[in-house]
């Protein structure tokens, strides 16, 4: 791109950024104050943290669809991945990295458990805990201790779908009682913890799967030849 064209595009970009900033500053304050409504109904939600109350109770339907979308994304990836035999075993990693992963992963699992439990009364919850679990799995793979996934076996499939199934089962039972995801007051906390525990496990596996399915390279002859020439 030559000088004047670049200048014109840059000018347009700056003008757009300015217009966006002006539009955000010009926004009227929200007509409905949802914070007040959440704070008023927090005691009926079964948890003490407003974000968890909104995600799992007041807007539980959104979270149900969210985990379904994530599961569908992974299913799509598994559908296009080629499950040929003879996949690459985990590459031998630096002994330093192996030791570090061995030390860090138990702590990460502990942190995920804490985040899951803390979600009831302070920032935390299933999504963050699942992300930490997924990071632990990715670290194990990079350290050469966990092979990449070609096609998941039955137990893994159950783990991937388990969180969604638990959520769906709770919703179905509650639907037969009256309304979708309207928890009975005395069991709300326990039901939310049950759903979040399932979500943590499944989210960890799904997010790790996004990495581990992509990391699985079938051992094609050209690639192994390239590796031999390097070594």
């Amino acid at each position: 791109m030559n000088g004047p064209a670049r200048l014109a595009v840059g000018g347009l970009a700056v003008a757009l950024a300015g217009a966006l900033a002006a539009a955000i500053l010009d926004l009227p304050s929200a007509a409905v104050d949802l914070r007040g409504a959440v704070a008023m109904n927090l005691s009926a939600s079964g948890v003490e943290h407003p974000v968890t109350a909104v995600l799992l109770n007041f807007r539980g339907y959104d979270t149900l669809l969210e985990i379904a979308v994530l599961l569908l994304a992974l299913l799509g990836m598994l559908a296009v991945a080629k499950p040929e035999s003879g996949g690459s075993p985990p590459a031998a990693a630096d002994p330093m990295l192996r030791t570090l992963a061995g030390v860090a992963v138990p702590l990460m699992i502990l942190a995920a458990g804490y985040l899951l439990w803390a979600g009831a009364h302070r920032p935390g919850g299933a999504f963050q805990a699942g992300a930490v679990l997924a990071a632990a799995a990715v670290l194990l793979h990079l350290a050469g201790r966990l092979p990449a996934w070609a096609s998941p076996k039955r137990m893994l499939r159950l783990g991937l779908a388990g969180g969604f199934l638990v959520f769906l089962a709770v919703s179905a039972i509650l639907l037969s009682e009256g309304a979708l995801l309207r928890y009975p007051l005395e069991h709300a906390g326990a039901l939310i913890l049950l759903i979040e525990a399932g979500l943590t496990l499944s989210l960890g596996l799904i997010l790790a799967g996004l990495f581990l399915v992509l990391a699985w390279h079938p051992a094609s002859p050209s690639e192994s030849a390239g590796e031999e020439s390097k070594s």
């Binding site: 920032p123 963050q128 992300a131 990495f211 992509l214």
Partner: peptide, 25 residues
Amino acid sequence: PDIALAEAAIGAGLTGALLLDALGA
């Protein structure tokens, strides 16, 4: 802090690892 946790774990951690892996491939 909720969004901060999610951003650090998913935005920086997992997406960064995916991008680095793609780069390696």
